[in-house]
Design a protein around this nucleic acid. Sequence first.
DNA 1: GGATTCCTGGTAAGCGCTTTCCGCCGGGTA
DNA 2: TACCCGGCGGAAAGCGCTTACCAGGAATCC
Lengths: 352, 352
Amino acid sequence: MPNPRSTTRATRSTGAVTLQRVAEHAGVSIATASRVLHGGTRTVGEELRRKVEDAARDLGYVSNAPAQALARSSTSVVGLVVHDIADPYFAAIAAGAMRAAKRHRLMVMIAATFGDPELEIEYVRSLRAQRARAVLLAGSGVADPDLTARLAAELDAFRADGGRVSCIGERGVEPYVPLDHTGGAERAATELWQLGHRRIGVVAGPEGLVTVQRRLAGIRAAWSRLGGELPDRRVVFADFTRSGGREAALGLFAAEPGVTAVLALNDVMAAGVLAAVQDDLGRRVPEEVSVVGFDDVPFAVDLRPSLTTVRLPLEEAGERAVQLIADGASPARQAPLGVALVVRGSTGPVAG
Amino acid sequence: MPNPRSTTRATRSTGAVTLQRVAEHAGVSIATASRVLHGGTRTVGEELRRKVEDAARDLGYVSNAPAQALARSSTSVVGLVVHDIADPYFAAIAAGAMRAAKRHRLMVMIAATFGDPELEIEYVRSLRAQRARAVLLAGSGVADPDLTARLAAELDAFRADGGRVSCIGERGVEPYVPLDHTGGAERAATELWQLGHRRIGVVAGPEGLVTVQRRLAGIRAAWSRLGGELPDRRVVFADFTRSGGREAALGLFAAEPGVTAVLALNDVMAAGVLAAVQDDLGRRVPEEVSVVGFDDVPFAVDLRPSLTTVRLPLEEAGERAVQLIADGASPARQAPLGVALVVRGSTGPVAG
DNA sequence: GGATTCCTGGTAAGCGCTTTCCGCCGGGTA
DNA sequence: TACCCGGCGGAAAGCGCTTACCAGGAATCC
């Protein structure tokens, strides 16, 4: 008896219903049982089919996914790698992904890196060990050649093992769901310019993140096109969190009190900025200071004043990313998802 | 050649590094290789150990989790069943769970039921097929005997197959992480009473949810203990969403304009209530109407006025639930996690 | 009418790993 | 010197499932 658990298993014999048992119960070969229950390409006669189905029902058969995975060398699991699932940005993406996964009868395994790129690599590796059907990278990468290369190597290995890969936002990985960070940022900056703001500040996320760099580039591009100035001291980097936003805003206004508008690179930070400006600094929004966010997470509309922000169709992005993976084919470039500036109460014309 | 993929695999022979290959490369038996790489109980001599490790590294070996799962009949996957991962309540629980999972080197598979109890059962079944090590039920159940029984049956089957189960909040499933919904609700209601409110309204979630019933029971208990009245028409049920909260509040005030305070049964609904009261109805909070939420999700503090709410330690609950599962032992009853009323700006004394 | 297809059911060879034996070897012990 | 014991390596039997291949029987074709 090579496997000691077989003893154990005999004890709870009711629990471990195998295909074998079903086949015996139905009086057919296990090949036939397999064909009926896991639908191969072959047809099975009406009578036997019935018998097998009845037996499976009677015994309460549930297939053994690992065994199937081993035999078929493929699973129905997709891995989703995010920075932090409690962040509404990633939660929205995950929700979309899970919705699509349900349609495709896939299970979603989520791994949170908490911003650590090493962990991201480790998780891809782990997903490879799981023989996940695909991995979906949701978070922005960092602009580090070494890390990028190591991740790429891991992804290649994953693909070599037959897995698919997709990601949200451009990241040097194909296929991906395009997200126009730059364009959205340009639009936001342009809006501010049109409202008459000339001295704006930027509350940015971690400097290394590609997403941050893109959004920042969009702002810079728009600003210089319009003829404005954006000195480095008006751009402050912090964590992509509420307190990061609050502290960054405080720092920004301490150094540059004359700023009339601040662009936060995501809504969570914007919430912090709003708190800093109104509660800590006692300035009114939007009369004295305008604030713009990014992402349009669900609570943006509930901030006071409600937040003007760049809407990113996050749920849809999540869905698409899964489709990309599931549809087997076409890593065909798709139309970028529409980003739009949602103008709400936190922005207004610059004070006379 | 029984398996057609073996042909395919031969093609990508670089990708599929098996233990077998590692063993050959190292010049040892696969038993030894297994012992070195997957740490059995037996010791392996220094020299061979080295050889195996080198071979594994050179070849880029990654173990095949499904194969291991089959051989050991156990995995390192835990399933987490939530209603909706985009809801900050569940996102927080998930974040905690994933943090703990990382410590225990477990992978988390998340399934979203979108409130459908049938789906919940289906997912438990699916997790059973995956031979998940455990399943963690995060959402509230519905108070339906049939559904409850069927879920219980599925969970028993899961356990019979060797899986563990735990859940957040009492649900007739052991072990569980106690969450004092009732006590929290009592505290919130009491606070309102002490502020002088006598005519309060409740904006509740779906009537069938056990959590909703508990919270409601807490409010009713406190209210009747204090000597107040809470007629049914001042309790309105709706979806646990922002728009559910908004519409419910609108309905509540249409029927009972004299209400001076409303208790929303979660913060997301409270955001909707705040919008309805201030924007749609034009009443001031807290001067004319006080609003209390539940859960203390991250954005509660950013609502205007910032939301008075009952804090539930959600992340911690998620962590504990995973620990319960991982610690093998002790389904010992633990001290309930502390709930606390966080008084902020949305509540005030009843208008003279 | 005999040979060829089809169709459908069964047999059995793996998928990649774990773990039980078994055997060998060196060192105590009697 | 004979014997036993502890350590360490390997052979091999599965874990539960899929599927190529085979084998009859019925239907089809000259």
